[in-house]
Design a binder for these strands. Sequence first.
DNA 1: CGGATGACGGGTC
DNA 2: AGACCCGCCATCC
Length: 110
Amino acid sequence: MKKTEDFYEKVYAVVRQIPEGKVTSYGAIAKVIGAPKSARTVGYAMNNCLKNNADLPAHRVVNRNGVLTGKHHFGHVDQMQKLLEAEGHLVKDDEIQGFKKVFWDPYALY
DNA sequence: CGGATGACGGGTC
DNA sequence: AGACCCGCCATCC
């Protein structure tokens, strides 16, 4: 499935570009890689990256509300939040405070 | 092959 | 603001 691999590759490529201290959303990534309606699949790709042992700053990727929807996939439910706080973010109730301010639009690459 | 699932998003009420 | 529903797409059963 070259198509699928290409999809994952693009997702990983974008995630790797996320600057430290910034975050983005699954939907934004999906849009940039040419699959604006596949945000859900982006999340699936991220889940797949776990077993791929890909070294991605996945904690910088949240949903459109700035909520840490995927924190349960970081081993410990507080791991994602800790990583974000370590980068200067303020996470309250699984939600990144000032999400819009720290949001990084991957479209900036183009 | 049909239905269910999920780290989502947008729209509606 | 919050709950709800529907569409998307890869994968699993």
